[in-house]
Design a protein around this nucleic acid. Structure first.
Lengths: 152, 152
DNA sequence: ATATTTGCAAAACATTTGCACGGAA
DNA sequence: TTCCGTGCAAATGTTTTGCAAATAT
């Protein structure tokens, strides 16, 4: 792949920076480094890990700025917290829209996919039986990705 | 309701204590108080809140014991962590089996229901397209319960 | 020019651990 | 009697806050 062509991660990074700018945030070296580390990550990163990854690019960045940037990206719906069986395993870039996450417990990678109308029948059933009006949901899957199944 | 008849919460409490005993845990005053506070709660409680509630029954209980008891109950699948839009809102008794949670953002109550095979089509689709083998999932809903809708 | 953002240090908060005593089985 | 469980205190780990200096717009 020629290095003068933007790769997939470069596109994601530009998109994220655009979204931040559109929302009124300023684009700084710290945010660039954090966003870059995030989209380049092969798996969800927690704040500490993201901090360490961002420091490669921008050594003066502080952990606090990582927290603040994650907060902004969550607010904008660009990033999701990923839950493994034992709790939060980190944050992952999901992009805009209704995305779900499948997390491989073996390699730790997260697979992002569009949330189809999978849950509408469940939601209708809740509405009918409990009269509960569903506004949002958290759906995350854990298991084994194709490669990690093959590796067994 | 006659106080000599076990009420719904009393039955839940007995069940939880039995399950703890079956798993090899000893039944102590601290565990009794914590379990009682948990099943009597009208909404998910965090460790601090559960600690305060348990102290009504057993003032000598320590916060650490609450953490350790919650850990045991989670391990046994008797209790689930409840996630609101902004993060964890506490732990709720769910009983054995595959249960899902709908959390009302207005009154804070959690509604527990059986997990039907809602997700099997989604899981099959993941299997076909990504060859991802789903082993477990986290599904929680947020919205408004019937009473809180009426109250508007 | 000016309002946001940053990084530091410290505070606040949450959770876990070591250990001697107490209590369930 | 035996070993598990307890509560305390302290350690550890995580996230937030106040603030003066740096910087994007």
């Amino acid at each position: 792949m020629g290095r003068w062509l933007p790769n997939r991660e470069g596109l994601k990074m530009d998109f994220l920076l655009q979204e931040l700018r559109r929302a009124g945030y300023r684009i700084t070296d710290a945010r660039r480094a954090i966003v870059q580390a995030l989209v380049n990550a092969s798996r969800p990163l927690n704040p500490q890990e993201l901090y360490e990854a961002a420091r490669v690019q921008h050594p003066r960045v502080g952990l606090v700025t990582v927290y603040r940037t994650l907060e902004a990206l969550l607010e904008l719906g660009m990033v999701q917290k990923v839950h493994g069986e034992q709790g939060c395993v980190g944050y992952v870039y999901t992009g805009r829209g209704h995305r779900h996450v499948a997390w491989c417990r073996a390699c730790g990678r997260a697979f992002i996919f569009e949330g189809q109308e999978d849950l509408s029948s469940l939601e209708q059933s809740l509405e009918r039986t409990l009269h509960f009006r569903v506004e949002g949901h958290l759906l995350q899957l854990t298991g084994l990705c194709a490669e990690c199944q093959a590796r067994t």
